[in-house]
Nucleic acid binder design. Structure first.
Lengths: 255, 255
DNA sequence: ATCTATTTGTACGTATGTATT
DNA sequence: AAATACATACGTACAAATAGA
């Protein structure tokens, strides 16, 4: 275990901080005991006795940790609070809340995409598991014809983003996987995205389709350098399609 | 008042979902009413009456939202729960918890840094406010001599990371600012980082010092392209210094 | 400065739901 | 099927903080 940095948070006892105090105690306990996901924390009754606090206070503290995805509780015998591995989805949802009051433009999102997605492609070139590759190719059938209406165009676009999320999830760099996945999630959650892609044309569809096909080939047989280059072209093209559209991302829904 | 879900409807719901129900209700309320940071939510008493739930349940729900940084509560007359703008620090802390059980290597972090920090530099070239620029230059005095011991070397490194955090905070792309700031925070939080930089030499310090100086000049007088290039060199050099060190990032502290 | 009203924060006892044995 | 162990929910009482008279 790494040396535990002592937290002065407990010393600064502001007002009405009993609940936070219990929450901090539990987090410190997890770290100090080196608990791993699945490990059990003391029961409510034990905490009440050990900390000398009421049931409500202890419960509020566990709820706070549960809200952050750190623990999860089960009822019944052998139940209690267990350390939980925060899911990427949960972490993305919380991060999305942070951006709820901030204005993100599509250009902002693509500025990161254009830098990071090629890295993902380079890392995954020749390393995509066969079943995943098969899944990706199967999904490609959605794109084998131009969209017949706006709704289908939107569906194609969401499916494309889903592919990028799935690919990112395979990436061995957890941070890269998370950030790229987060951006794709934000883009798919956008209700305005259909408007973005409304001025469509057969040429644009063709371009997207070709990029997609080349990308899959590069992932399966190409070198990291070719995969990176293909993905970069793909991103730059997509970015160019909407660069002038200075549409502010509409606030979505808190999650 | 928001539409009240009837008590019977809630009763038929599955177990243990009352608190989450209230939390969801509140988030939906914030969205539906278009509430902004500072706006007030209904009081505990009002919620108890409107939702037909106990005080404890309502409180647990508000604590969950508070734990996510969405609201903050104040006591006294005119008090209550208020919509809160999640701070970047809070969001970073929650995200750091997500990576607590995931192994991030320094290489993972630098893979993103090397792509994103040059973007920050390019965006900020010629746009750093004068006082910020003065602050940055003042901090440079920390580097005007080679570190005399390991502790000072570590201090220099943390100060350097702080500069990158401060610069990122100025970046007009909120997502780019957040991700770059987050990486710098993770790197500075690492207690092992001193070990990483232990094999130091005067040449390495000189290199870091020169890059820093060139970077400040590029930010103040350079074009986006030169600033980007300088930052990229800076990142690649730093990355090269530790590329072979496959040190896993030790788990820090939950926050 | 003191009181008062308002509103969250804490405590505790009890009852109920739920899953394990 | 029944007993057990645990979280979940309710209701009331009281403490603490804060704004305003």
């Amino acid at each position: 275990m790494p040396p535990v940095t002592t937290r002065t948070a407990l010393a600064t006892r502001r007002n009405g901080a009993r609940t936070e105090q219990v929450a901090e105690h539990l987090k410190a306990y997890i770290v100090a005991q080196g608990l791993r996901p699945g490990d059990r924390l003391p029961s409510e009754a034990a905490l009440i006795a050990a900390l000398g606090m009421s049931k409500g206070t202890v419960r509020e503290a566990t709820r706070m940790l549960a809200a952050q995805g750190l623990i999860r509780t089960r009822t019944g015998p052998g139940g209690g609070a267990f350390v939980d591995d925060i899911t990427a989805d949960h972490a993305m949802a919380m991060l999305a809340n942070f951006f709820y009051f901030r204005d993100l433009s599509v250009a902002d999102l693509y500025q990161l995409r254009i830098q990071l997605e090629p890295e993902v492609a380079a890392m995954m070139a020749g390393r995509v598991p066969a079943e995943a590759m098969a899944r990706f190719r199967a999904e490609t059938t959605r794109f084998d014809h131009p969209p017949r209406d706006a709704e289908e165009e939107r569906a194609q676009h969401v499916a494309s983003l889903q592919f990028h999320r799935d690919l990112a999830a395979l990436c061995p760099n957890p941070l890269l996987a998370f950030v790229v996945g987060f951006i794709a999630k934000i883009l798919s959650d956008l209700t305005v995205i259909r408007r973005l892609y409304e001025p469509h044309s057969r040429a644009l569809w063709q371009q997207g389709h070709d990029h997609h096909a080349r990308l899959l080939d590069a992932l399966e047989h190409g070198t990291p350098e070719t995969a990176r280059a293909v993905m970069r072209q793909h991103m730059e093209a997509a970015f160019g399609l909407m660069a002038e559209q200075e549409i502010r991302v509409a606030r979505g829904v808190l999650e």
